[in-house]
């Protein structure tokens, strides 16, 4: 299998506080890696270092063989291949849904207006939001916003998608519609790294689940072993609280 991301000895500190401590792991093409763990354990920080929204304090991250922590690497060139979905959607409120989706393909990939709009319409159709084409983000519900945010990232044809607690800001009845889109992505063999509290999703969709606690990958396994019989005390107590 091909390595998509190689993480070597990754450390991140905010001042004195060490958030990530010497994390090393590889992410392969087609992996769906779910990261779970207590708040403050470093899940989001780890995810955000993968596209350099957080600058690592030390260590290396290789994306498709390129060291993205190297100062000479053009990070914009890397980021266009790494999709990211945020907890708070971060749609652009001054642009219509269609403009939200076509901005980056037109400016970064130099696609024509027509071809990017065609693609946007196709993707919106798939997530059932084609009728929202010309409305503004504030007219959408949370679940709809997050579905738009996902397809906005897909417009760039990314090699990997990062999800930072994509359902945590949603009303409970809207969680399902967003998870459905993510499940479909996983079926299409999209490589995904997902920080989540949705244990059901992790169980069903992931091929790897990791427990991030106190800045380290405290435990990692297939979902089956992870949830049913983990030989890690911290994880057992964590799972007993959330399941």
């Amino acid at each position: 299998m091909n390595k998509l991301l190689e993480i070597k000895d990754l450390c991140k500190s905010f001042g004195e506080h060490k958030v990530l401590k010497n994390i090393s792991t590889d992410i392969y093409v087609g992996d769906v890696l779910c990261l779970v763990g207590p708040s403050g354990g470093g899940k989001s920080t780890f995810l955000r270092t993968l596209n350099l929204l957080e600058l690592p304090t030390s260590g290396q991250i290789l994306f498709e063989g390129t060291d993205i922590t190297d100062k000479n690497t053009d990070i914009d060139n890397i980021r266009k291949k790494i999709g990211m979905v945020f907890q708070h959607f971060n749609l652009f409120p001054h642009l219509t849904i269609l403009e939200n989706m076509t901005l980056a393909p037109m400016k970064v990939l130099n696609q024509t207006k027509e071809s990017s709009e065609d693609k946007a319409k196709e993707l919106l159709n798939r997530v059932g939001l084609i009728d929202k084409l010309n409305t503004y983000p504030n007219m959408l519900s949370g679940g709809q916003k997050q579905r738009v945010a996902i397809v906005r990232s897909l417009m760039m044809n990314p090699d990997v998608m990062l999800f930072d607690e994509p359902t945590s800001a949603l009303d409970p009845e809207m969680v399902g519609e967003v998870l459905d889109v993510m499940k479909e992505l996983a079926r299409e063999k999209m490589t995904m790294v997902v920080v989540t509290h949705e244990m059901g999703f992790a169980k069903e969709v992931a091929n790897r689940v990791a427990f991030l606690d106190n800045g380290v990958f405290a435990y990692e396994n297939s979902p089956d072993k992870f949830f049913n019989n983990p030989n890690n005390e911290r994880l057992q107590s964590f799972l007993s609280k959330v399941l």
Binding site: D76, K81, F92
Partner: peptide
């Protein structure tokens, strides 16, 4: 909101 800058940058915009 800083999320707007992050969203833009994560899409590959300079």
């Amino acid at each position: 909101d800083n999320g707007q800058m992050e969203a833009g940058r994560s899409l590959g915009l300079s």
